[in-house]
Design a protein around this nucleic acid. Sequence first.
DNA 1: TATTTTGGTATACTCGATGATACTGGTTAC
DNA 2: GTAACCAGTATCATCGAGTATACCAAAATA
Lengths: 110, 110
Amino acid sequence: MERNQEDELRALQDTLYFIGGKWRIPIMNSICNGNRRFREIERSIPGITTRMLSKELKDMEMNKLVKRTVYPDTPVLVEYSPTEYCRTFGNIIQAMIDWGKAYRKVVVED
Amino acid sequence: MERNQEDELRALQDTLYFIGGKWRIPIMNSICNGNRRFREIERSIPGITTRMLSKELKDMEMNKLVKRTVYPDTPVLVEYSPTEYCRTFGNIIQAMIDWGKAYRKVVVED
DNA sequence: TATTTTGGTATACTCGATGATACTGGTTAC
DNA sequence: GTAACCAGTATCATCGAGTATACCAAAATA
C-alpha cells in the first residue's frame, strides 16, 4: 500500500505533465469533436492565439496525439485528425467536463 | 449541438483553471489517501517545497477543498482533512491515475 | 546538551508558458 | 482591384508559477 501510493503519485504526475498547459486538452477535445482544419479548430477555442495553436499541434503531432495530413491540391488543404492514442484521453476529458458542469458552480456561488 | 460544444468547452476550461498548477491534484490525492499533517503531506509528495505546499493549502482552504483544524494541546497539532467537495474530484484523479499507468508508457517506449 | 521534528514564513530569483502584434504567400470571392 | 480566408511564422514582451535558501519558536528525542 505504501508502494502503491508511490506508483499512483507517479502515474498522476506523468499525466499532469502530459496535459501540460491550458490548451492541450481543449484542442484534443475540439479535434475529437470533429474539427479538422486549422482555422476551424482555432475558432472553436475562443481566446487561443494562432501561435499557441500552432505550437501545440506540432507538439501533439510529435507525441502521436494528432495526425497531420496535407492534401496538395490547389488550394492546399491541411487536416488534423485524432489518433487512437488521443482518444485514450476520453475518460479524463469527460470527467473534467462532468466536474465543470456539476461542481464549478459551488465556487461561483460562493 | 453547437451550443453543447460551447458549454462543454467552458466546463472543461473551468476545471482546468481550477486544477491550476502541478501541485493541487497531487495534494488532493495525498490528503484523500489519509495524509493529514503538514510534514506528512510534504513527505508524501517528493519534490514539493514547503512554500508551494503552504500556498496551495491556503488556497485550497479558501476554496473549501480542505479543512484545517488546529488542536491547541501542547504541542499544537494541525490537521488537514478533505471536504466532500474535494472528493468530487475523485473521478478525475482516478482517470488520471489510470491513464498514467496504462498509456504513459506509449510515449516512454517511443 | 545537541539535534531533529513540527508548522510554517520571508526573500530573492529564474525561466518558460503565454500573450500581443505583425507579417507572408497563395487563393478565392465581391 | 481589393478584401477576406487559409495555414501558418517571426519577434518581442510579460508575468507568475515554481525553485532555492534561510529562518523561526516550541517540543521531542538522542
